[in-house]
Amino acid sequence: MSHATRSRPPTARLPVVAPILLALLGLAASAGCSTTTEPAPAASPVHTAAAPSPTASPSASSTPTDAAWAQLMTPMNEKALALLTLAADRGTEPRLRAFATRLHSGQEAELGRLRPLLARMGLPDTDVHAGHDMPGMVTEADLEAAGAAEGGAFDRLFLTGIRDHLRHSAQVSRSEITAGARADAKQLAADLVTAREAALTELEGLPGAAQALG
Rank of each mutant, 00 (worst) to 15 (best):
L24I: 10
A148F: 11
P124G: 11
R115A: 02
A23W: 04
T36E: 15
V138L: 05
V172K: 10
T92A: 14
V46R: 13
P75C: 13
S173Y: 01
G180F: 05
S173P: 01
D89E: 15
G147T: 09
T35A: 12
P39N: 13
A12N: 11
E176P: 00
Q171M: 09
P19Y: 11
A190C: 07
G147K: 05
L192Y: 10
E108R: 15
D142I: 12
I20C: 07
A130Y: 12
E176H: 00
T37K: 15
E176R: 06
T35D: 11
G122S: 09
A12F: 03
M121K: 08
P75R: 11
E108F: 07
I20Q: 12
A209H: 03
D142N: 11
A185V: 04
G147N: 08
L114Q: 08
R13Y: 06
A212G: 06
D191K: 13
E140L: 15
D133F: 10
E197D: 13
R113M: 15
R156C: 14
T55N: 14
E38K: 06
A130L: 08
D89P: 12
R120I: 02
R113K: 11
G208R: 00
R163Q: 13
C33T: 08
A145W: 06
I177K: 09
N77I: 05
P52T: 14
R97T: 07
L24V: 03
L203K: 03
T37W: 14
S59P: 01
A183M: 08
A43I: 02
V46P: 10
T37F: 14
L200K: 00
A80W: 00
A80V: 10
E204N: 03
T201V: 01
H3K: 04
P116I: 07
L200M: 05
P75W: 13
A67L: 13
H104V: 05
L21E: 06
L203H: 01
L81K: 03
G205T: 04
G136V: 12
L25N: 02
Q71M: 14
A40I: 12
A212D: 07
